[in-house]
Amino acid sequence: SSRTRFTDYQLRVLQDFFDTNAYPKDDEIEQLSTVLNLPTRVIVVWFQNARQKARK
């Protein structure tokens, strides 16, 4: 499976959201998916990875 290449804009939006809320609800994931034009699955994985990094 090929890795998703995020744009600077997508990363900024995801990071800004994460800084406020590391555990987005389903409807928030749907909204991010629509706004960023990314599959919900990709967003879910991004947040999982971001939470892992934040824990270190």
Rank of each mutant, 00 (worst) to 15 (best):
N49F: 12
I43C: 07
V35A: 11
R55A: 09
W46L: 01
A22P: 14
F47W: 03
Q31D: 13
A22S: 14
L36E: 00
T34C: 09
K25G: 10
R3L: 15
E30H: 12
A54P: 10
D27F: 12
W46T: 00
L32I: 08
F47T: 00
E30V: 09
F18T: 03
T34G: 08
N37H: 05
E28Y: 04
L14K: 00
P24A: 05
R12A: 05
K56E: 02
Q15T: 10
F47Y: 06
K56A: 03
F47K: 01
D19R: 08
V44K: 06
W46A: 02
D8R: 04
Q10R: 02
L11G: 11
Y23Q: 07
V13A: 12
Q10W: 01
D26G: 12
Q15V: 09
T7K: 03
T34M: 08
P39D: 14
R55I: 15
Q48N: 08
F6W: 05
T7L: 03
A50Y: 08
V42K: 06
S1F: 14
F6T: 05
Q48C: 11
I43W: 00
N21D: 08
V45I: 07
E28N: 05
A22F: 06
I43F: 03
R51K: 13
L14M: 13
K53F: 13
D19I: 06
F6I: 09
V42Q: 08
K56R: 07
D27S: 12
S33Y: 01
T7W: 01
P24W: 02
F47A: 03
P39G: 12
R3Y: 15
F18G: 01
F6P: 01
Y23N: 03
R12V: 02
V45F: 04
D19Y: 07
R51I: 06
Q52K: 10
K56V: 09
L36H: 01
Q10V: 02
N21P: 01
D26P: 07
E30F: 08
A54F: 10
K53I: 08
Q10N: 05
D19K: 10
I29N: 01
V13Q: 13
K25V: 10
R5F: 15
R3T: 15
D26C: 05
L14Y: 00
L38G: 00
S2F: 06
V13P: 00
Q10Y: 01
D26W: 11
D27I: 08
V44Q: 11
V35D: 06
R55Y: 15
D16V: 05
S33R: 02
R41H: 07
T4Y: 15
R51N: 02
V44L: 13
T4Q: 05
D27K: 11
A22N: 10
E28Q: 13
Q48M: 05
E28H: 07
T34H: 13
K56I: 06
F6V: 08
D8T: 05
S2A: 03
T20H: 07
D16F: 01
S33M: 04
Q31F: 11
Q10E: 05
I29A: 05
Y9C: 09
F17Q: 13
W46S: 03
T20C: 12
E28D: 13
Y23H: 10
F17N: 13
Q15F: 07
A54V: 11
V35H: 12
V44R: 09
T20L: 06
E28W: 02
F47P: 00
F17R: 13
P24I: 05
I43S: 01
Q10D: 03
L36F: 03
K53H: 14
K53V: 15
F17G: 06
W46E: 03
W46R: 04
F47I: 13
L14V: 06
V45G: 13
S1L: 09
Y9K: 15
R12L: 04
L14G: 00
D26M: 10
Y23V: 11
Q48H: 03
S1N: 07
N21F: 03
N49C: 05
V44W: 05
R55E: 08
D19V: 12
A54D: 10
N37L: 08
L32E: 01
V42I: 13
E30T: 11
W46D: 00
D27G: 15
K25P: 06
R12N: 11
D16H: 07
V45S: 14
T34Y: 10
T4D: 12
R3F: 15
V42F: 03
R55Q: 09
L14E: 00
R12W: 03
V45L: 12
V35T: 14
D8S: 04
V35L: 12
Y9T: 15
N21A: 07
D19C: 06
S33V: 02
N37G: 08
K56H: 12
T7G: 04
Q10G: 01
Q52I: 11
P39N: 08
V35G: 13
K56Y: 13
S1W: 00
A22D: 12
